[in-house]
Amino acid sequence: MSEAMAIVCENLSRHFGPVRAVDGISFQVPAATIFGFLGPNGAGKTTTIRLLLGLLEPTGGRATVLGWDIVAQAERIREQAGLLPQNMGLYQRLSGYESLELFGRIYRLPRQERQARIRQLLMRLGLWERRDEPISRWSGGMQRKLALARALLHRPRLLILDEPTAGLDAVSAVALRQELAAMARNEGVTVFLSTHNLHEAQELCQEVAVIKAGKIIAQGSPAQLRELGRRRELLLRGRGFTEELLQALAGRQEVVAIRREGDAVALELQEGADTAALIAFAVARGAAIEEAQRPQASLEEVFIELLQGETNAH
């Protein structure tokens, strides 16, 4: 199991006095995938990351990361994992090069390999030209890229990113996402991406889990989660939607409400409504239907619904 799964959490909990920051969460992260860990601020994302790296001891439950126990073998985990913390945690007085030099020494990379790897990463992220300047003079985007380079320096098997694109402009955020996707694809790295940027998660992640108040409230692929939020709505576009037809449709048991949207008609349906029967009903009464659509919710809409407790997820 540990070969196929980079992270396995079983009923993992961490309480701070009466506060249940992480409350019995269970999830698995397949190796060499990008896993999105979604949740609002204060949901327990950062605490979970600290637990996974062995920086905090769990109050209950257990977890393995890369096959190692988070309590007994935390140092082994940290050897093989790279972290990009939310606030980056860069030594502002050091230059970009020195910062990577420090972490290369910490991971005991041999001198030549260390120098080559630092050069490779700084070049790849477009930071090489300013490598000797103190980090304090760099822009936020450059600092975030450097923090990513630092996390990647020792070629970790697991990369843990806590809000990696927070504070980045749109162009830098897109570039960083492309970098992450390429890395996961080409280098077989497992990426644990903690974010509240739903667009990012939808674009990058194969699997996501949603955490709210310390509990996992949904888990699956982004497509599966969007299914959870599939609107109970049928949009019919075409001609022949007369008032009589609309009244007839409104009178059907499975139709909750009906409204016009330009040349289309939107029907709000009961749970489990037979849409094919409704379409046939409309056609039989003279409607010429050009397009029938069940609009799908975006991950963002599902996320909001989940947080508001309107959708029951598995």
């Binding site: 920086l55 972290l83 945690g89 502002q92 910490i106």
Partner: peptide
Amino acid sequence: ERGTLEAILATRLP
């Protein structure tokens, strides 16, 4: 305070 401690604690350093 600066968050650098977490970054260094998360490495392989005991």
